[in-house]
Amino acid sequence: MKSFLVIAAVLIVGSNAQENFKCPDDFGFYPHQISCDKYWKCDNNVAELKTCGNGLAFDASDAKFLTENCDYLHNVDCGERTQLEPAISTPHCSRLYGIFADEKKCDVFWNCWNGEASRYQCSPGLAYDREARVCMWADQVPECRNEEVAGGFTCPAAGEVAGASGSFSRHAHPDDCRKYYICLEGIAREYGCPIGTVFKIGDSDGSGACEDPEDVPGCEDYYGDVDLKALRKLGYRK
């Protein structure tokens, strides 16, 4: 019982000591001792406790303490400031502010600002990596299911593609004229031709290149009524 009271007393004293913060200078922004999403604003030597938005943390990297900046949690080195306000979640947002992976599709992620989620999708063949927080090749993202890596495409076994150069080969997408797969060392990665072009299967197995739609049988109308000549003038070229 005594040990419990001692621990409780330490916690209370620590809390009171922190709430009785004294400004080191007349003006500045100072990190809270134990909370990463709280900080002290000093104005005319008067301290005011502030809290960042839910999912943001106070960036205390300014050695002069003149910058008031709340940034995404993953961008801030909290050090020993380990406490955070309880999470407030909304659809697709674990907290009101932050960047979060989609729970069902590994190439989709959500940018949340004040609880409003904006959907983003990685380029073909890529997926959102939760640790690096960037789009990477889907085969390098552990959360991706097999069918999500290169759309489930499986590379031919070694030696099956007669015209392939070593372990490298190209293969057309079964449904989309603009997309194709590259197999390297048995790993398939999905690519997309530049806008205005489509993938044309080469003369030898496992080869191909991006060409004008009119030169690829079955893909002539891929872009519909889009003026491809105008696109090329704007710099969209293969």
Rank of each mutant, 00 (worst) to 15 (best):
F4Q: 13
F4K: 06
I7Y: 00
A9I: 08
L11E: 01
I12N: 05
V13A: 15
N20G: 02
F21N: 11
K22M: 08
C23I: 11
C23P: 02
D25F: 14
F29M: 06
P31D: 09
Q33T: 09
Q33K: 11
W40S: 03
A47E: 14
L49C: 06
L49T: 12
K50G: 00
A57D: 08
A57H: 05
F58R: 05
D59H: 03
A63M: 04
C70S: 07
D71C: 01
H74E: 10
N75E: 14
I88R: 13
D102W: 09
E103F: 01
K105Q: 12
C106N: 04
V108K: 09
W110N: 08
W110K: 02
C112S: 09
E116I: 13
A117L: 10
S118P: 00
C122R: 01
A127G: 11
D129P: 09
E131K: 14
E131R: 01
E131M: 05
V134Y: 02
M136D: 09
M136A: 10
A138I: 13
A138Q: 05
E143S: 15
C144Q: 10
C144N: 10
C144K: 09
N146H: 07
N146Q: 11
N146K: 03
E147H: 04
E148P: 12
T154W: 00
C155N: 02
V161M: 06
V161D: 03
G163T: 07
S167C: 02
R170S: 12
A172R: 12
H173K: 06
H173T: 12
P174L: 02
P174Y: 10
Y181T: 14
I182W: 04
E185V: 05
A188S: 13
E190F: 05
Y191P: 08
G192K: 07
G196D: 10
T197A: 14
V198R: 15
F199G: 12
I201L: 10
I201N: 01
G202A: 14
D203W: 01
S204H: 02
G206W: 02
A209I: 11
A209E: 14
C210Y: 07
E211L: 03
P213L: 03
V216D: 04
C219I: 11
C219Q: 11
D221P: 00
G224V: 12
R237S: 07
